[in-house]
């Protein structure tokens, strides 16, 4: 086996550990959130936004490992997870916009401009992230269905 190929399962495991870490933090934040209160929901979504970089990195590592190993089941599962994540992100964007609008009247003075920037940043993250997740999901599903190519290992003499 090519030494680099042995690295892919470890890469996938590292990505899963990072995801576990981020998701456990999210659940801890969720436990202290009253979802009936718009300000509470707003704080939760902002918290998710701040974890975006780590989640995206873990996602890239996971896709890299699945593509490198040409693991069809993993590609299909990742495709499904990305469809779900994309739909949730777009739905969250609509809810976030509604909550941010309701909260805007409570923010006054000089704080309104920084509030708008934060709202815009999170909204962009959710919209772009959601759309990207749906595109990636389509690509991953197509890769999972594609005919099996000759891998470097299988073509060895």
């Amino acid at each position: 086996m090519n030494p680099a190929r042995r690295f892919f399962p470890i890469l996938a495991a590292a990505a899963l550990v990072i995801l576990f870490h981020q998701v456990s933090s999210l659940f801890a934040a969720l436990a202290g959130t009253d979802l009936h209160v718009p300000a509470s929901r707003l704080r939760l979504v902002t918290g998710v936004g701040s974890r975006g970089a780590a989640v995206v990195t873990a996602d890239v590592l996971l896709i890299w490992a699945a593509v490198g190993l040409i693991h069809r089941r993993a590609l299909r599962a990742l495709g499904g997870a990305h469809y779900a994540a994309g739909a949730v992100a777009l739905l969250a964007a609509a809810m976030f916009l509604s909550d941010a609008g309701a909260m805007a009247s409570a923010v006054g003075g000089k704080e309104i401009s920084s509030y708008r920037i934060v709202v815009l940043r999170i909204l962009l993250l959710l919209l772009v992230g959601g759309a990207a997740a749906l595109i990636v999901a389509r690509q991953l599903s197509a890769l999972a269905r594609a005919p099996s190519p000759l891998t470097p290992d299988s073509s060895s003499l």
Binding site: L11, A14, V17, I18, H21, Q22, A54, T57, A58, L61
Partner: peptide, 10 residues
């Protein structure tokens, strides 16, 4: 800090 250190390691 573990997540970020893992990314560096990868």
């Amino acid at each position: 800090r573990g997540s970020v250190l893992l990314v560096a390691e990868v």
